[in-house]
Amino acid sequence: MHGSVDGVAQADLAHNAAQLRAEVKKLSFYYGTSQALKSVDLPIVDRQVTALIGASGCGKSTLLRCFNRMHDLYVGNRYEGSITLYPENLDIVGPGVDPMLVRLRIGMVFQKPNPFPKSIFDNVASGLYIRGVKTRAIVEQRVEQSLRQAALWEEVKDRLHQSAYGLSGGQQQRLCIARALAPNPGLILFDEPTSALDPIATAKIEELVDQLRLNYTIVIVTHNMQQAGRISNFTAFMHLGQMLEYAPTKQFFTAPEHPKTQEYITGRFG
């Protein structure tokens, strides 16, 4: 555990100048009695892409789902430590913090495309409806804007009121991205967004993530190291619920410090 703190601390020093959008400090997480995260530290730099990598079961998805308190949907889960969201200075996992409030500020794109069984338009507008935005003109404008941002507008503009289930898998995932973008969240979580997609659709999503960085802070879980290398600015490596190494992506892949990281990126395990 000491090794990990050192690694994170160094990276922290190097990028202290950058503005943070969120900061994970000594976060532990328990599914009932089994501990899934062990005192994790992680800075999330504003308007950059942070990738979480590691072997399956290492806790990367668990960590991601702490950011929007997704674990609260199921009983018996428990957090310790903190995740501070800036500039609000809100402790996401703090006691008494309404998970709904957190989710209103943080968007999420899931592993499998999960559009609602509704029209394309209503899918994208969902986040606005949930926030009580009902003015037709605003909703329409924002739906178009989000679909454009998600590079889907041209493909669906003539069938906005048809079911989202008529779209291909890759289109559905971009629709889910548009849905997450529409309410303009400061931070967007991607949970292995391309694991259910073919290579062409994957390339499109990656390109999209690259574009979105200009306006949004992104945390992405990926099981694919090449993907992390291609799209992220910072990479964090997790192993058995611990944060072993965090560094700018380039440095991470060229000069990893932790021996486990070296093993992982050279393909000796995982």
Binding site: N68, M70, K112, R131, C176
Partner: peptide, 27 residues
């Protein structure tokens, strides 16, 4: 109704009633 629909709704910041009335009940 698949779990993913629920998670998508909650992920957007919906509260329980919004999730139930807006997404679960129609499905």
């Amino acid at each position: 109704i698949p779990l993913e629909i629920r998670e998508a709704a909650y992920g957007l910041g919906a509260d329980k009633w919004q999730t139930v009335s807006g997404y679960i009940l129609p499905a």
